[in-house]
């Protein structure tokens, strides 16, 4: 058991932006044995709840809601339902699972996150907003400003309507001046979120031809 489970270590892990979500999950998963065998008392509960919440968020960043659900079943039920941090995380998990956009953003912005978790929370919020935006671009041909704001969690914030419009227009969306409806344009390449190395299309074709040649040689 190489790594130690303590707040400092946890804090360095979650603030490391260079760590890919999958690598983060792996590192955190290694600590689960220590966390689960750690006796729960008033002094350890802060560490344990921060640890589990960070673990949840790293899974959210991987879009692995299934595993997040299983993780919630591995945590002692009493603790999951009594610790404020874990209650918030679990609420978020449920909202993500049922696609309740309003509830997702409310939880993200207003739940009492700890100082350790804040970097992960904002990282996930950014990621999720981007992902939703790409989905909207693909799924809708016409959408109202109000719905867009709800989907992107900009409703009820200080963000002015004009700035939302400016934001989506900058991404290539059109706008019908007469009705005020937004006209999303598909963003073709949705790879920029996850595997930056394979999104070069030409490279992809070259690789494929290479593979096919290999197959014919077998």
């Amino acid at each position: 058991m190489g790594a130690q489970l303590n707040l400092e270590h946890l804090s360095t892990l979650v603030t490391d932006q260079n760590l890919s979500p999958a690598a983060l999950v792996d590192l955190l998963a290694d600590l689960e044995a220590t966390a689960s065998s750690c006796p729960l008392n008033s002094s350890s509960s802060e560490l344990i709840s921060n640890y589990y919440s960070a673990y949840f968020f790293s899974l959210f960043l991987c879009d692995d809601l299934n595993e997040a659900r299983f993780l919630s079943k591995r945590i002692p039920l009493g603790f999951l339902q009594s610790d404020p941090l874990l209650i918030s995380t679990y609420t978020l998990l449920r909202a993500l699972y049922t696609r309740s956009y309003q509830s997702i953003y409310t939880t993200l912005s207003s739940a009492p996150w700890s100082s350790i978790l804040t970097p992960l929370v904002s990282r996930f919020e950014k990621y999720f907003r981007r992902r939703t935006f790409i989905l909207l671009s693909r799924a809708y041909t016409t959408i109202s400003l109000k719905s867009t704001a709800i989907f992107l969690g900009l409703e009820g914030t200080d963000e002015k309507e004009s700035s939302i419009i400016a934001m989506v227009v900058a991404e290539g969306w059109g706008r019908d001046e007469a009705t005020g409806m937004l006209k999303p344009v598909p963003i073709d390449d949705d790879d920029d979120l996850r595997d930056p190395d394979v999104n070069a299309k030409d490279g992809g074709i070259a690789r494929l031809t290479g593979l096919v040649t290999h197959l014919t040689e077998v």
Binding site: R138, A139, Y140, T141, T142, I143, S144, L145, K146, S147, T179, G180, M181
Partner: peptide, 9 residues
């Protein structure tokens, strides 16, 4: 693809 008809939600 989906399209909404009115600005009013």
């Amino acid at each position: 693809s989906l399209s909404q008809s009115e600005p009013d939600y």
